[in-house]
C-alpha cells in the first residue's frame, strides 16, 4: 500500500451530504463526533468545504433538486474520494422508492463504496461501516 493511501485511511476527513433525508441519519452522523463515540480518535474530522473532503457521507433518498447539486459537488471533490451511503434511503430508497420526487437511486448517480443500512443506523453502525470501508480500501477485507 502506498504511503498516500495509508495516510488517507488514517485521516479521512468527511463531508456530510443530505440528499433529502428525514434528518435522523444526519443527526446520528453528527452524534459520532460527540463525547460518547468521538471519531476524532480515528483521525476523522467533519469538514465544511467539499474541497477538503476525503469521504462523502451521503444520506437521504436523492430527490430531484439535490441530485443536480450532488453531481456538481462530485465533480468538485478532489480525488481520491470515497463515498459512504448512510441509511436505508440511500441503499434502496426504502419507503420512498415510488415517490415522484425521488427518481433514481444513489448508486446510479455516483459510485458508492460502502452501504450502512438502518433507519437510522446507530452511531456504532456508522463507525463499523467506516472501519469496513478502511478495510476494504486497504485490501484487508
Amino acid at each position: 500500500m502506498s504511503l498516500k493511501l495509508k495516510a488517507l485511511l488514517k485521516s479521512p476527513w468527511v463531508f456530510h451530504l443530505s440528499t433529502g433525508s428525514c434528518n435522523n441519519c444526519d443527526i446520528e452522523t453528527l452524534d459520532c463526533l460527540t463525547p460518547r463515540f468521538d471519531i476524532e480518535r480515528f483521525g476523522m474530522l467533519l469538514v465544511g468545504s467539499i474541497k477538503h473532503a476525503d469521504v462523502l457521507l451521503v444520506s437521504g433518498s436523492c430527490n430531484r433538486m439535490s441530485v443536480e447539486r450532488l453531481k456538481v459537488l462530485w465533480d468538485q471533490v478532489p480525488k481520491p474520494c470515497l463515498v459512504v451511503a448512510i441509511g436505508t434511503c440511500t441503499g434502496s430508497r426504502g419507503l420512498f422508492i415510488d415517490s415522484y420526487n425521488c427518481p433514481v437511486p444513489l448508486d446510479k448517480i455516483i459510485p458508492v463504496d460502502v452501504y450502512i443500512p438502518g433507519c437510522p443506523p446507530k452511531p456504532e453502525a456508522i463507525i463499523a461501516g467506516a472501519v469496513k470501508l478502511i478495510q476494504k480500501v486497504g485490501g484487508t477485507l
Binding site: 441503499g91 434502496s92 430508497r93 422508492i97 415522484y100 420526487n101 427518481p103 433514481v104 437511486p105 452501504y115
Partner: peptide, 20 residues
C-alpha cells in the same frame, strides 16, 4: 400537479426497480 388524482409518472428516466 403531483397531488391531483390523475397524476401519472411523466419522467421516463425514473428507476423504480427495487434493487437491494
Amino acid at each position: 400537479y403531483p397531488l391531483r388524482q390523475d397524476y401519472v409518472e411523466w419522467d421516463e428516466t425514473a428507476d423504480r426497480t427495487r434493487g437491494v
